[in-house]
Write a protein that binds this DNA or RNA. Structure first.
Lengths: 345, 345
DNA sequence: CTGAAAGCGCTTACAG
DNA sequence: CTGAAAGCGCTTACAG
């Protein structure tokens, strides 16, 4: 293994000088610098990250804590993990993937052994035990998600309330007044996944403001039950002219449900939802939707986390960021305004 | 930060003795050991992993290198990453997730900076440039996949040939003689994803042996084109009584395609495929299939990698492991033997 | 069975 | 502008 000492010898300088050009934190005479760089090149030298970590107390590694309870829809979760990896790498950090069911133990472990400089927590729920673990070990962290009470931890998430409003308004603009709301199982509400009620509350509030009717259909937790149950709900939709879907699995299985119920989009029924472009691609979902944007949410999380790491103990106030989502119109909403206005004239 | 020195002072012993009980590599008198353990407990001490790594030249971290070219079907890939994380943790290793598009650069980086003890490479293709990078840096590695030439690197994969035979034989046993083979796009063959031709070759060979007809339908790469194209292929199936699907996206979108073509399973057509239990769950796929078993393949990979790390430079021979898959009968294959034999009598 | 010493490969005040 | 020295927190021969 070639070390900083070998480089120093090759360049005819001291190890400190080599270190100075490596870290770039000190001015080094151009000539000296050049000699060092040449030696580095020649010996194909790279700093030993463990040694550097020991000397600097910085690992340049971020831990990503994801918990798979089984209620999550993993095809929708994975893109966030990959996006976090990309965002971290763009900032010269590596990502340690932590999937242990005992997340609290995992946090303790990496915090105490100083394996990472900070943590990103995924699929956070209200009263998440991981939040207490964070506080106990006082390690920089950011939540990708927005619990009711973040316990002083920074958090970044999509603005689900805004997303709901965008979709309901979109339906309203096109003349829809009676909408089926296919939403996450109440088990998800009970488990404290706050994004479900943030979306739900806003959807109902917006519908009420606009004088629209929203009928709830609770999507089953088990994916294998979804197509049939959803098809049934669509058949029993009464005068509803559109369906608002907030449940990744239901969105993904919507094509099956539609076929099963024999309905065509947007002629027989309009559809709007919320999912990522990647899910749309993987599942061939041709529905107008708000983009859940794993890339942007992940980048935002890493950004906040790095600031927190840099700020250190200087307790700046907690940062909560809600990213305003954008909508992708895929033409799955029929315009009813002409038909509606006709009888009035 | 509490160090080994604090523990030594608390226990009234030397740092070496503390280290001895921590590593467990040396016998320590029961009484002394107890005092040390008590001190560790009291101070809530944990070894600094960076310092230990520097002293031992072992990081206890494994790098997982996954490349997302866009042709992969990520809902089918992610379970392998999570399973690797679980398997590594079970062996006291952490996982560094490496998703950079420049995988060769990534391998160089972690190998030279000694960030990891070994690597698992996913979605390997024939003549994968990552194999050369492995050799250049002489870092222990295992391929989760089985390229034509593994270049002396250990490899673990599902036995796709066996899987194909199982499925074809299953169809044959139930009287199917004319089968539609919906397989990965030839772009996947061209890209060198060896599992596609390993499955394909075996399927054709087995079909020929058994006197069955296998008609190829090449699944489009773009998921959004799959339902319609597949539905069309099903309509044009002629006398084919079953469809053998080897393409994760096609399997996932099969329900849509079936609905679109108006066919029911197994009454109108039989279906067999190859995917993971998790994909089956997420997509509600009620088809008899060979299990791709991310958990078992991942555990096997980690096992082989750890052996390789332990063996070090003592060049034991290259290990190639093909895991025999198991089949899950979900009743999607109709038994034609009674109907077939009737006219013969 | 235990401890003093050297070393892992780096960085960082501190002199000069 | 450069270098000698100390230190990051551990482990591991080596004495005793």
């Amino acid at each position: 293994m070639t070390t900083i000492g070998d480089v120093a010898r090759e360049a005819g300088v001291s190890r400190s000088t080599v270190s100075s050009v490596l870290t770039g934190r000190k001015f080094v005479a151009p000539g000296t610098r050049a000699r060092v760089e040449l030696a580095v090149e020649k010996l194909n030298f790279t700093v030993n990250s463990g040694a550097r970590a020991l000397a600097t107390s910085r690992t340049m590694v971020i831990g990503v804590v994801v918990q798979l309870h089984g209620m999550e829809f993993s095809p929708a979760l994975a893109p966030f993990v990959f996006a976090l990896s990309d965002a971290a790498r763009a900032a010269s950090y590596d990502v340690l993937l932590m999937t242990e069911s005992d997340a609290v133990g995992a946090i303790r472990r990496v915090a105490q052994t100083r394996r990472v400089d900070g943590l990103v927590l995924l699929n956070i729920v209200d009263d998440d035990p991981r939040l207490a673990a964070l506080a106990a070990h006082d390690i920089p962290a950011v939540l990708l998600g927005m619990p009711r009470d973040s316990r002083g931890v920074d958090a970044v998430d999509l603005d689900f309330a805004h997303a709901a409003r965008r979709l309901v308004e979109h339906l309203h603009e096109r003349g829809h007044r009676d909408v089926l709301f296919a939403r996450w199982s109440s088990a998800m509400f009970d488990a404290g996944h706050s994004f479900v009620w943030r979306f739900s509350d806003a959807a109902f509030a917006c519908a009420q403001e606009l004088g629209m009717r929203l009928r709830t259909f609770e999507v089953p937790v088990a994916p294998e039950l979804i197509p049939a149950a959803l098809a049934q709900a669509l058949r029993d939709r009464g005068d509803a002219t559109a369906v608002l879907v907030h449940d990744d699995a239901a969105a993904a299985l919507m094509p099956s449900a539609l076929h099963e119920s024999g309905l065509r989009v947007p002629d027989d029924i309009s559809v709007v939802s919320l999912f990522s472009a990647e899910l749309a691609r993987s599942f061939a979902l041709p529905y107008t939707s708000v983009e859940s944007d794993p890339g942007r949410v992940a980048a935002g999380s890493i950004d906040v986390l790095l600031r927190r790491i840099a700020a250190g103990k200087s307790a700046v106030s907690t940062v909560h960021t809600l990213l305003t989502p954008r909508m992708v119109d895929r033409g799955s909403v029929r315009d009813l305004t002409q038909r509606r206005s006709a009888p009035v004239r």
